[in-house]
């Protein structure tokens, strides 16, 4: 369960902004899922910012947020908007260009 799996991208730093709406179930799940992914795959090489757009509504327009929750991956590569509670682990990893860990309990199938 060490992040040795993603060797190929281990050098790059991830800049992630998660936009949530308070403590709605979707947002809570998204936070939990993202924390788990960061711990499991990106330990020590990520910068995570969680923005509650209920608290800071002006940020929503700046970050072009339509759906909630939304994870905006600023880097590496082009910006990507990952919409939803991030429960599709396989898809999230693929979108973040991370190699799935076979030991990851959230990977189903």
């Amino acid at each position: 369960m060490k992040p040795e799996q993603g060797e190929d991208t281990s050098g790059t730093a991830y800049v992630l902004h998660l936009y949530i709406t308070g403590v709605t179930p979707n947002s809570t799940r998204a936070v939990r899922n993202l924390k788990d992914i960061c711990d499991r795959y990106l330990a020590g090489r990520y910068e995570l910012q969680i923005v509650d757009i209920y608290q800071q509504p002006e940020k929503a327009q700046e970050a072009r947020i339509v759906a909630a929750p939304t994870l905006v991956k600023r880097s590496p590569g082009g910006a990507r908007w990952l919409v939803g509670d991030l429960s599709d682990r396989e898809r999230v990893l693929a979108l973040l260009d991370l190699t799935p860990d076979p030991n990851d309990p959230y990977l189903h199938g």
């Binding site: 709406t21 339509v66 929750p69 939803g84």
Partner: peptide, 15 residues
């Protein structure tokens, strides 16, 4: 935009 699970359009409402 990629969909990764459950969501709503609360972002739009807030804006």
């Amino acid at each position: 935009i990629e969909e990764t699970g459950e969501y709503d359009l609360e972002g739009l409402f807030i804006r």
